[in-house]
Computed example of a mutant assay.
Amino acid sequence: MIYKLTVALLLVLVGALCHAAETNTIPLELTDSLSGEPVADAVVILEDGPSEPPVEAEIVQKNRNFYPHTLIIPKHSRVDFPNQDNTQHHVYSFSPAKAFNIELYAGRPTEPVVFNKTGVVEIGCNIHDQMQAFILITDSAPSGRTDEQGRLTVEIPPSVDDDSGKIELLVWHPRLTDNTRMARFTIEQPSSGSLELSVELSPEPASDDRLDGLQERFREL
């Protein structure tokens, strides 16, 4: 009898622990506050969510473009900038999260760039105005990117749920009116239904060869 009671108690405790360790999920819908249209391919990050170790990554220069256009890395990661074009490039950034300058070069730079501070790093080429890329340095692993309908399911692990019902989300898209930083939302977890958020996007650029603000700042030096 005692044995049966002990087993039953253990099962109850295990069930309680499993319930406490369950990961909550929130369906999210993101729209443009000006047009009301869904925002696709936006990066969503849960503040204080699970972290990842630093990585070795690359942003390749090919056909006078950066690939990938957006790179998401954990803090303290190292990024190389190999040039696969038959012309030289001059890669630089003035962003507070990481300012750097790799002057005219072909092939592969001598050393990768280390990103030790969280934030958004905007990258350009002083020779080719249309070249632009972004690096997002994070403390938490991204929850993912929104689909064509602006939807994403965000997982909320028990370590983030402090019983207040509130969480903080970071959202970034290259066409945010201020894409040099991530939009921050402090929200209450909905008891049912999806979480609806909106951000303000700039219009689609009229041309790929426009002289953007990053290039103008470089030429003012």
Rank of each mutant, 00 (worst) to 15 (best):
P190E: 02
A141N: 08
S191Y: 06
D85N: 11
P74F: 06
P38F: 00
I156L: 15
E122T: 11
S93P: 05
A106G: 15
Y3M: 02
S159Q: 09
R151G: 01
S51R: 05
H90I: 15
R108M: 14
L10G: 04
R108H: 15
T118D: 07
V171T: 14
T70K: 09
R217Y: 08
L201H: 09
V12F: 08
P203A: 08
V14W: 11
P53S: 13
G165F: 01
T23R: 13
F115Y: 02
V39E: 12
Q84M: 07
L71F: 15
R184L: 12
I73H: 02
V120D: 10
M1R: 06
R175D: 07
V171L: 09
S198V: 01
E155Y: 01
T70M: 13
G150E: 07
F134C: 13
E216N: 05
H173G: 03
L197F: 04
S191T: 14
A42Y: 08
S191G: 12
C18V: 13
D161E: 08
E200P: 09
E47N: 13
I72V: 10
T25Y: 04
I72L: 11
L169D: 00
E111Y: 01
F100W: 12
P158D: 08
G165P: 02
L46V: 10
H19K: 12
S192Q: 09
T186C: 10
G193I: 05
G193D: 03
R175F: 05
I167P: 01
H173P: 01
R210K: 11
R151H: 03
V55P: 00
Q84K: 11
G150M: 05
A141P: 05
T153S: 12
L201S: 11
E56L: 10
A57Y: 07
H76I: 04
Q130L: 13
V160N: 03
Q84T: 09
L170D: 03
G36S: 06
D139S: 15
P54N: 15
N24W: 08
R217P: 05
D161K: 11
P50Y: 10
L211S: 10
T180A: 08
V44I: 06
N24Y: 11
F218T: 08
Q215K: 13
E29H: 10
T23M: 10
E188D: 08
Q84W: 08
P112R: 03
T186E: 15
D178T: 12
T138P: 10
S140D: 04
L169G: 00
I187D: 07
R217K: 13
D162Q: 10
P50W: 08
C18L: 13
P190V: 04
N116W: 00
S77W: 07
V171A: 13
L197R: 03
R78E: 09
A42T: 06
R108P: 13
P205S: 06
E58N: 07
